[in-house]
Simulated scan of single mutants.
Amino acid sequence: MRALISKCLLGVACRYDGGAKYCNAVVDFANKLDKLTVCPEIAAQLPVPRPPAEQQGTCVVYKDGTDVTQEFVDGAQQELLRTKDFEPTIAVLKAKSPSCGVDRVFDGSFTGNLVLGDGIFTQLLKREEMCVVTEEMLEDVKPSVEHPVAIVLGTGLGHLASLVAPVRRIDYHDIDGFPMSAEPVSGHKFEATVGTVDGVPVVVYPGRIHLYQGYSAAEVVSLVRHAHRLGCKDIIFACATGVIDGNATPGLGVLTDHINLTGANPLADKDMLRDLDTPFVGMQDAYSFYLRSLAQGVAKDLGIKLQEGVYAGTLGPSFETAAEVAMLRSFGVSYVGMSTVCEVIMAHALGMNVLGLTLATNDAGDPTVNHETIRIQAEKHADDFERLVRGVLHLL
């Protein structure tokens, strides 16, 4: 996998003040992949040290008022040419700067105030549809004992739990909000494992309950709330799905967005407000672009075909009619299943970083499909799924 990384984050003294912004999380990440180091200001041959610069509208100015917009544009364009030759998957750039800031930049008042916007170089990268993040994202998603990665597994994918070096096990029935009477369906197990996979701290939930079993949305998301209370910042949801012919093909996929057709929402429950400031949560970017990009980079390195697509969550337990499949195809849906959407809504509302992975086991609406055939097909792809998840955990 290849990544662009700001030189200053790796310890190169190229910032305006003659220093660097060394970041351990970025250095650790850089040591696991091929990297191209970048600095638009150095590419523009601006001196080090130099006066501090910030964006004022569409311009970049020094603190004394000198307009250096053209220099910043020239440097950004030069680095973009190098970027296109290198073909990276992800860019990790210095937060807030007029060249490399992502989503927020200093406002030009030189008082430390921030405004919404991207740096000059970041704007060019986003036009190329590249995932661009800052060192703050890498620091936030980096797993630790205090912040393990949560992994919720679906039908036929529970074998990943056997890879965990366990520290403790937690019966689902001991989890607050999980229904005491619940029994697992075939291919699920109701015991969470806290431990490590390849040295990465994780909490693995090898099964889930579903709305179609008669449980409420609040009960369905009890595992997500539990993971959040354990300190998990990142959560991986895995599910078996049907594929909408014409929009995707059977195999592994990463979810980019979803359509909630279950008729339920976990935030429409007064008890959920114990964990939330408000139930009115925006769902833009519910599926982390950064984690999706990591998964795509890992899949490419491992030779695993990994598609992308929109997921439609239905109530179930009946499978889709021909008319429903046609409707979903017209909606741009690639995958359809009976889980995940309520869990993702809850995780996003709690501020967790979400990666949605699916194994599309069959064509949606196939009259020969049943729960057992889905489980069998999922198990056939278990090896690639495990390699993909382990690769993502390694990069985190």
Rank of each mutant, 00 (worst) to 15 (best):
I304Q: 07
K142S: 14
V132S: 09
L252W: 01
V133C: 11
H394D: 03
K305L: 05
S318V: 08
Q55P: 00
C59I: 02
G365C: 00
Q123N: 13
I120A: 02
V202R: 15
R127H: 11
G108Y: 13
T111A: 15
E308S: 15
I151L: 10
A322F: 05
G19L: 09
C239L: 10
L124R: 05
A217F: 06
V132L: 11
V105W: 14
I259L: 15
P184M: 07
E139F: 00
C232L: 09
Q377G: 08
G154N: 14
G365T: 05
G282N: 11
G251E: 04
V220R: 05
E386V: 08
A25R: 11
A312V: 03
L9Q: 09
S330A: 12
D285C: 01
N370M: 05
G242N: 10
T58A: 13
E146H: 12
L273Q: 11
K32M: 07
A264G: 02
T373L: 00
T134R: 10
H173G: 03
N24G: 07
D74W: 10
I5L: 15
I304Y: 12
L267M: 11
R292C: 02
S181V: 08
N31T: 13
F237K: 01
G316W: 11
E71L: 08
G57F: 13
G108Q: 05
G117W: 09
Q296W: 11
C39T: 11
V48P: 05
H210G: 04
Q296Y: 06
I235E: 06
G19D: 12
C232H: 13
V243R: 01
G313V: 11
V336R: 08
M137P: 01
T373R: 00
H159N: 08
A264T: 00
N260A: 12
M346H: 02
A295R: 03
S222V: 01
V164A: 03
